[in-house]
Amino acid sequence: SSKLHLSPKADVKSLISYVVTKTKAINGKYHRFLNRHFPRFYILYTTFMKGFQMLWADAKKARRIKTNMWKHNIKFHQLSYREMEHLRQFRRDIAKCLFLGIISIPPFANYLVFLLMYLFPRQLLIKYFWTPKQQTDFLDIYHGLRKQSHSEILSNLERVIPLISDPGLRWHLTDLCTKIQNGTHPAVHEILALRECFCNHPLGMNQLQTLQMKALSRAMLLTPHLPPPFLRHRLKTHTTVIHQLDRALAKLGIGQLTAQEVKSACYLRGLNSTHIAEDRCRTWLGEWLQISCSLKEAELSLLLHNVVLLSTNYLGTRR
């Protein structure tokens, strides 16, 4: 009887298959061991492993998008909504990761970094490395931080009302601020009626006072600890990106977004969507888009303030 001889190539494939199978089996046993004996550590371990996988997948996707942009000479604002949002979020995530990488360069500093990551996950880690509970808790904390600046922003708006030359606009802005401070959610047309206020002095993007820029930076979860020119540039850049995202989203249609995409979009624009039903989030996002897509570039200061004007009292969120 003749023996069946495998080719060297088949032998290698068979060996690789065997190694992969054994590795998966050992890995499964290791996971079960951790889950049984160290449940809290197991949650952290699996969260980190999944986080690295998702971050790597994001990096590959971002690279594909950037390559396509270079290849076809496509600008950021010409991308689809999901591509724009992916790049925007990835840039923020990478900035956080780079900071961790830099502080872990000195010898043995990586051990300290791991300790800091464990002690301060909200400040040092991106959302992929948060547990589901942490994601909800941390988003609430971040919203609480930005909400602290809402009253200051409204007070600053009231303070500059006498500087507005048009009596009608003065009345409209006074009325809007009063309504918001009394807990009323403003209508889209009430906000759009003020677009002229936010073109020039004192509320145009280039005329905003330093205190207002600092408060708006906190409301956008941006650092307020920068010189005024840098604050203005960063706010302008951030608002422009959101405006570009809004136009792309309007083209796509809110109905095309998943529930998570809707909630993320609302959160970026100032609404704490973590505890609001999906349909309500879609309604709010629709109101935001009505305002945003009606604004010209010179009126983007209104879009920036809209983070406070439109979100403060939506469904009783002002608590």
Rank of each mutant, 00 (worst) to 15 (best):
F99E: 05
S151P: 00
P228E: 15
F99A: 15
H150M: 05
P202K: 15
G168K: 12
V19S: 05
N206Q: 15
R234T: 11
H233S: 15
Y111M: 12
T23C: 06
M84P: 04
P167W: 04
K24T: 09
D140E: 08
G204F: 06
R88K: 08
L15W: 15
I291C: 05
K60L: 15
E297N: 13
F90Q: 13
H143N: 14
D58C: 11
Q256C: 08
H275Q: 12
Q212D: 14
V308G: 05
A298K: 15
R269I: 01
S264Y: 04
N73K: 15
L231P: 03
P39T: 03
P202Y: 07
M213V: 04
M84K: 13
A57Y: 06
R170A: 02
K3H: 06
S273E: 10
E278D: 13
C293H: 02
H150F: 14
L304E: 03
L116V: 06
L154F: 09
N156R: 15
P162Y: 04
P224Q: 05
R280H: 12
S7Y: 11
L295N: 09
I26M: 10
R40G: 04
Q256S: 08
I191P: 02
A57H: 07
P224M: 09
K71F: 03
G28R: 12
E190D: 14
K296I: 00
L44E: 06
I74S: 04
T240L: 13
Q53A: 14
N206T: 14
A298Y: 00
L300A: 01
F33G: 01
C266Y: 00
E287P: 00
N272W: 00
S151I: 02
P39N: 01
I180V: 11
Q181S: 15
E261W: 01
L173C: 06
G255M: 06
A62V: 07
G168V: 09
L231D: 07
S149Y: 00
L216T: 05
L315E: 14
T46Y: 05
H225I: 08
H37N: 08
R40V: 05
R232T: 04
F33A: 09
E83H: 12
T178S: 09
G28P: 02
R247T: 07
R146S: 07
R146F: 02
A59L: 10
S149E: 11
I94A: 14
K147H: 08
Y81W: 14
V307Q: 15
P107Y: 04
A62G: 12
A57V: 09
T312K: 15
D93W: 14
T317H: 04
Y18F: 13
